[in-house]
C-alpha cells in the first residue's frame, strides 16, 4: 500500500524549501492559509507572507504588483475562487504582461466532497488554459506537487497549479523526474492510451490493471502539464495505440480532454473518450461516492477504453 498524502501538504513543504533558497519568494493568501498550506510558509517567513482577507481580486493584483518589483509571488486560495472570481485580473494584469505570479490553488475537483458544488471546481483547467502565457499544471501526487512548485520558481512567468484537498496515494517514485511540459509515461501499452492528470492518474493505473485481465494492454500517461501539453508523447502513443481515453476530475469540456482532442483532431484524428464530469455541477457527498456518481472511477476509464478500442478501424 502506497503512502497517502495530499498534494496541498507537499505544496506547503515545497514553499518553505523554496523560501529558504530564495528570499525573493513571497506568498499571498486570501484567508485560507490553513487549508492551502501556505501557513507553513508564513510560520517560517512571516515578513514575506501577506494575507489579503476574503478578497480574491485584490489577491491577484497585489501579487501582480509585488512581482513587478522582482518578487516571485505565490498566490493561493481554493481552485474555484483563485481562478473564477479573479479571472479577468489574471487575464488582463498577470498573464497579459507575463508577470511572475504562480497561482497555486487547493481544493480542485469534485473530491472536495462535502462542501458541495459551490466549492467544487470543475472548470478551472479550462478557464486557465485559454489564457495566453499561462502554464497549467495538475500534479498527480505529493511528489509531483512538490517538484511542480519548485519548477514554477525556476521557470519565469505565470503558472496555474491545481492541487487537491484529499490525501491521495503517492504513486510516483522519488526518482520520478518532473519537467514542465514533459509528460511521464507510467506504463507502456499497445491497445489503448490513457492520458490522465491529478488524482485520475492513480485511477488510470488501476484501470490498466483491470484491462490487463481482459488481455488489453493500456499505456498510461501522466499528463501533469496541460499547457503547454506534451504533443510529442501524444503523437507517439496515438500512432502506437490508435485510440485514447482522457481522465480528469473536471468537466470534459475545455480541460485535459479538450486539449488532447484539439491536438489530435488537427494532427492525427482517432477515437477519443473523455472521462470527467459531463457538463454538470456536483453536490455534497463523500469523495469516493461523488467520483462514482459522476463517472470518474477506474471502471469508467475501462468502459471508455473498450468503447474507443471498438471504434478503431
Amino acid at each position: 500500500m502506497s503512502e497517502l498524502k495530499a498534494t496541498r501538504d507537499a505544496y506547503g513543504e515545497a514553499l518553505v524549501e523554496a523560501g529558504k533558497n530564495n528570499e525573493n519568494i513571497v506568498v499571498v493568501d486570501a484567508d485560507l492559509s490553513a487549508s492551502t498550506k501556505t501557513a507553513k510558509f508564513r510560520k517560517h517567513f512571516p515578513d514575506r507572507f501577506f494575507n489579503v482577507g476574503v478578497a480574491e481580486q485584490n489577491l491577484i493584483d497585489i501579487a501582480a504588483g509585488l512581482s513587478t518589483c522582482g518578487k516571485i509571488v505565490f498566490a493561493s486560495s481554493f481552485a474555484l475562487f483563485a481562478t473564477g472570481r479573479p479571472w479577468e485580473q489574471i487575464r488582463n494584469t498577470v498573464a497579459y504582461s507575463n508577470l511572475n505570479v504562480k497561482i497555486v490553488a487547493s481544493h480542485g475537483g469534485i473530491s472536495v466532497g462535502a462542501d458541495g458544488s459551490s466549492h467544487q471546481s470543475l472548470e478551472d483547467i479550462a478557464i486557465m488554459r485559454v489564457v495566453p502565457n499561462m502554464k497549467v499544471v495538475v500534479p498527480c501526487d505529493a511528489n509531483e506537487s512538490y517538484q511542480a512548485v519548485l519548477s514554477a520558481v525556476a521557470v519565469p512567468g505565470p503558472f496555474y497549479i491545481r492541487l487537491g484537498r484529499e490525501k491521495v496515494p503517492v504513486i510516483t517514485g522519488s526518482g520520478n523526474e518532473f519537467r514542465v511540459g514533459k509528460a511521464n509515461v507510467l506504463k507502456d501499452g499497445s491497445d489503448v492510451t490513457i492520458i490522465a492528470c491529478g488524482i485520475m492518474v492513480d485511477s488510470a493505473m488501476k484501470a490498466a490493471d483491470i484491462l490487463a485481465k481482459d488481455g488489453l494492454k493500456a499505456a498510461v500517461i501522466d499528463m501533469h502539464t496541460i499547457k503547454p501539453i506534451d504533443t510529442e508523447i501524444i503523437m507517439k502513443y496515438a500512432e502506437k495505440t490508435g485510440c485514447v481515453v482522457t481522465a480528469e476530475e473536471h468537466n470534459v469540456i475545455g480541460g485535459l480532454g479538450g486539449a488532447v482532442c484539439e491536438f489530435l483532431s488537427e494532427n492525427h484524428p482517432l477515437p477519443v473518450y473523455r472521462v470527467g464530469t459531463r457538463d454538470c455541477f456536483g453536490q455534497s457527498g463523500e469523495p469516493v461516492s461523488l467520483l462514482q456518481k459522476y463517472g470518474m472511477t477506474p471502471q469508467d476509464i475501462c468502459e471508455g477504453a473498450k468503447k474507443v478500442i471498438k471504434m478503431k478501424r
Binding site: 481580486q57 491577484i60 493584483d61 497585489i62 501579487a63 501582480a64 504588483g65 509585488l66 512581482s67 485580473q89
Partner: peptide, 8 residues
C-alpha cells in the same frame, strides 16, 4: 491593488 503590491 497593483499599487498596494508595489508598496508592500
Amino acid at each position: 491593488s497593483v499599487a498596494v503590491g508595489m508598496a508592500l
